[in-house]
């Protein structure tokens, strides 16, 4: 064998040994599923759900849909994405996940002002994830399951995670990805003012657009007309966050609630004081579980009242 071939072989053996060692030693979340599988599940699963929760990161982190199932509302999916626009494209993808079973089909929407801004459409996490998913799906053409399982061992590393492992520190923000689409989050040092600095400037030149609100309502009316129960609420946040959004976003919750209810939607009023966030915008693990339970029971009782 030539020297060059020996060199290439040595490189391959060295690289493979290093990769296997890393795959074995790398810490993994024992409760959840790998992040890439989590996002893949959100997009690629069949239309088999009775109730789908949709909205931005406040839904993604704040609604444990397992509580919906416990309350007897049927098979549930959290279809939340970070920075999602509240528009027909997104809502229709959420509605497409509802199956044709006998149970009443329910779409639960977390309404936030950011979803109706121009930036939500151009720079949203949903589109980015959808794009990544499509690319991955294309490249995954005929990828066997055993290979996907190996691939998961080599998820891209994150610098912060590596630095923490190196210094034997625990991540202050603990996140667990569940197959039902929920990310359970808790922070060792919660700070209810943390997200305010971003929201203080988020709506500068980027206010909620009434035309986008109208367009979203028109689509929701179509869904309601098709027999889907559409439930909406304002996700609980800190008082100061509510104040900033009310003052700067240009979005009127009272007006939306009236329009939405007139269309036949079910609006649920939430008392945010009962729940705690870790950054002013996202519910911590305990509050998310508690809130989800309360939301499930409220939806159930409202639906029973309507029978």
């Amino acid at each position: 064998m030539s020297t060059e071939k020996v060199r290439i072989l040595t490189v391959a053996v060295l690289a493979l040994s290093l990769l296997v060692a890393i795959a074995i030693l790398r810490p993994r979340d024992k409760h959840g599923i790998p992040e890439s599988t989590f996002w893949q599940n959100k997009f690629s699963g069949p239309a088999e759900f009775d109730i789908v929760a949709a909205g931005d990161s406040r839904i993604l982190h704040g609604v444990n849909v397992e509580e919906f199932e416990n309350a007897g509302l049927g098979k549930a999916l959290n279809f939340g994405f970070r920075g999602t626009p509240a528009n027909e494209e997104y809502y229709s993808m959420a509605a497409e996940r509802l199956g044709d079973g006998d149970k009443q089909k329910i779409l639960v929407l977390g309404i936030t002002p950011n979803g109706f801004t121009a930036n939500a459409v151009t720079t949203n996490g949903f589109n980015q994830k959808l794009k990544d998913f499509k690319a991955a799906k294309k490249s995954r053409f005929s990828t066997p399951a055993w290979f996907a399982a190996i691939e998961q061992r080599f998820e891209p590393a994150k610098l912060a995670e590596m630095m923490r492992v190196a210094s034997r520190r625990k991540n202050p923000l603990q996140e667990t990805y569940y197959p039902n689409g929920w990310i359970e989050s808790s922070h060792q040092k919660p700070n209810e003012d943390y997200a305010l600095r971003f929201f203080n400037v988020r709506f500068d030149g980027n206010a909620a657009d009434p035309a986008r609100v109208k367009s979203a309502c028109e689509y929701l009316q179509t869904l309601i007309g098709q027999g889907v129960r559409v439930v909406a609420f304002r996700p609980p946040v800190s008082d100061s966050m509510s104040a900033v959004e009310d003052e700067k976003s240009g979005f009127e919750y009272t007006e939306f609630k009236k329009t939405f209810s007139d269309l036949g939607g079910i609006w649920i009023d939430v008392d945010p004081a009962k729940f705690k966030t870790y950054d002013g915008s996202h519910l911590n693990s305990a509050s998310a579980r508690e809130f989800s339970k309360w939301l499930a029971m409220t939806i159930k009782s409202r639906l029973e009242l309507m029978k």
């Binding site: 040595t10 490189v11 060295l14 690289a15 290093l18 990769l19 890393i22 080599f154 891209p156 590393a157």
Partner: peptide
Amino acid sequence: LAVVIVMTILF
């Protein structure tokens, strides 16, 4: 080169 391959996969 072995390190670069590992870095390409992990990063």
